[in-house]
Amino acid sequence: MDNQRISDELEIARLLTTYARAVDTKDWELYRSVFTDDAHIDYSSAGAIVGSRDEVVDWFAVNFGVIPWSMHYITNIEIGQTDGDSATVRAMFYNPMQLPGMTEMSACGGYYHHELVRTPDGWRSRSLREENVWFTNAP
């Protein structure tokens, strides 16, 4: 493995960590920074929004803001096909959370599927599709 591939993998892993921190801290400007301006985001498998980056941020600000806490863990990051300036990524997620009005913790898990591009500011996601596989203690 060459130095560029190692550097890319580290930067991509950091981008996914930034994504998790942005969602869990409800820092929607930081969330925007993970994506390209024209990104398409699909959370339909979790019963949530599909749309542009800005549409998703607006939806999150209203709907995710009522969740008292969440803790996204992103693991098993598989970086697939790369051609130098684009890459596909499949990563597992585990997300325990406290849902409003519920006393027991809820959790969900699945996969994030990203299409990434290298920009002057580093790697960014131009497409994210969440594949929610399971949910415990749903509302």
Rank of each mutant, 00 (worst) to 15 (best):
Y31W: 15
D38S: 08
I49D: 02
H114F: 13
H113V: 15
W59Y: 13
V133S: 12
L30P: 11
M1G: 14
D2V: 08
G65A: 14
N95D: 13
R21Y: 06
T25M: 08
S44P: 03
D24K: 00
S52E: 06
D83M: 01
F35P: 05
T25W: 00
M105E: 14
D42V: 07
D121N: 12
Q81D: 15
Q98F: 01
G80Y: 02
F64C: 12
V117C: 06
R124F: 13
E115F: 00
C108E: 08
R32T: 08
V56M: 11
R32A: 15
Y31L: 15
N63Q: 14
P120M: 13
Q98H: 12
D121P: 00
T136G: 11
D27G: 09
I12M: 02
D85P: 00
E11T: 01
E104L: 07
W134T: 15
G109C: 13
N137K: 09
V66P: 09
I74Y: 03
D83A: 07
W28F: 15
P100K: 08
M71P: 01
Y19L: 06
A39D: 04
D54T: 03
T25L: 14
I79M: 09
T136I: 15
A20H: 01
V23D: 00
D27M: 07
G84Q: 06
T18A: 04
I67S: 09
D85K: 06
A87V: 08
I6A: 15
D54H: 04
D37P: 01
V50M: 02
T88E: 11
G110A: 14
S33L: 08
L15W: 02
A13V: 02
V133M: 12
K26V: 09
H72W: 11
T17G: 14
G47S: 03
P100N: 12
R90H: 13
D27W: 05
S45P: 10
T36G: 01
N137G: 08
F35K: 01
F64T: 04
Y112G: 09
L99A: 07
V23H: 00
S127E: 10
V34E: 06
D42G: 09
R32Y: 08
L10G: 02
A91L: 13
M102T: 13
K26N: 12
S106Y: 08
I12N: 01
G84L: 10
R53K: 13
G80Q: 07
M105Y: 03
Y31K: 01
N76W: 01
S45Y: 01
I41M: 12
S33W: 02
R5K: 12
V133F: 02
T75F: 06
E104I: 11
N95W: 00
D42Y: 03
V34D: 03
E115Y: 00
L116D: 06
F93R: 00
E115S: 08
M105V: 12
